[in-house]
């Protein structure tokens, strides 16, 4: 088992009066894709936002490469090499695709070769380079959101439901692109409801319920065990191909 790049130890998060995370323990190994599954409202998005410092952990610790990042603010966490693709994609619709990408390259002008690679992964980025991001379709916005997160090499990418509301053809494209991204050995934490995608991409899996991790292990083992799926999520992966 590779060394953990990210660990959460007993993380609790409150949003206003609501206690959302109830002691999340999570270990994400370096390289590969760690899936975060669970029903709606299980706390998956809150977990990603807590890692990014967008919501502060009220108790517990978030460690990145062994260093405690719990008290850091979001820009500092981002500059440690963690990128975030939020559920709503976070696209700046008033800006062009080019401006969205330029802004994400915090170390200066984007590297030309890397940009070419990204445009090969997501061809609409090249096609609509000078267009307003607000005019893109939902799938193209999602591609831009992921492309923006990888405009510079990152150690860890947190992606929240990248296939939500997308057409099957776009989901297939997105899955292919994330597979290629996975080959670069970037670590990805992926929240996903699409089980076919989860099985195709995931190396490890953590299942959440009621703000806690209720199962952690290999994705392949979970995918092969319908009874376990039924017990953990009340669903069978086979039923969601």
């Amino acid at each position: 088992m590779p060394e953990a790049i990210l660990t959460l130890d007993g993380v609790h998060t409150h949003i206003g009066p609501y206690h959302i995370l109830h002691g999340v323990d999570l270990s994400v190994p370096e390289g590969g894709v760690a899936m975060l599954l669970g029903r709606n409202g299980a706390g998956k998005t809150t977990t990603l936002r807590t890692i990014m410092g967008l919501w502060k952990a009220s108790r517990g610790a978030v460690r990145f490469r062994g260093k405690d990042i719990t008290s850091l603010d979001t820009p500092a966490i981002s500059r440690k090499g963690i990128a975030f693709v939020p559920e709503d994609m976070g696209i700046f619709t008033d800006l062009t695709v080019a401006e969205n990408m330029t802004l994400a390259a915090t170390r200066g002008a984007p590297d030309k070769r890397r940009l070419d690679w990204i445009c090969d992964l997501f061809p609409p980025i090249r096609t609509f380079w000078e267009s307003s991001a607000g005019t893109l379709s939902g799938g193209q916005k999602q591609m831009l959101s992921v492309a923006r997160a990888i405009i510079e090499p990152r150690d860890l990418i947190l992606i929240d439901e990248p296939t939500k509301g997308l057409a099957p053809a776009i989901i297939k494209s997105m899955t292919g692109a994330l597979k290629q991204l996975k080959e670069t050995e970037t670590t990805i934490v992926l929240v996903e409801q699409n089980f076919a995608m989860a099985r195709a991409l995931g190396d490890t899996v953590a299942v959440m319920d009621d703000g806690r991790i209720i199962h952690a292990g290999d994705m392949a083992a979970l995918a092969a065990d319908a009874a376990l799926q039924e017990r953990l999520m009340g669903l069978s992966l086979e039923a969601h191909q």
Binding site: L54, D73, S78, P86, G90, F92, T93, D94, L103
Partner: peptide, 12 residues
Amino acid sequence: ENGEMVEALGYR
């Protein structure tokens, strides 16, 4: 448009 996302990109 989205101050939170600007912070998530690493800007203060």
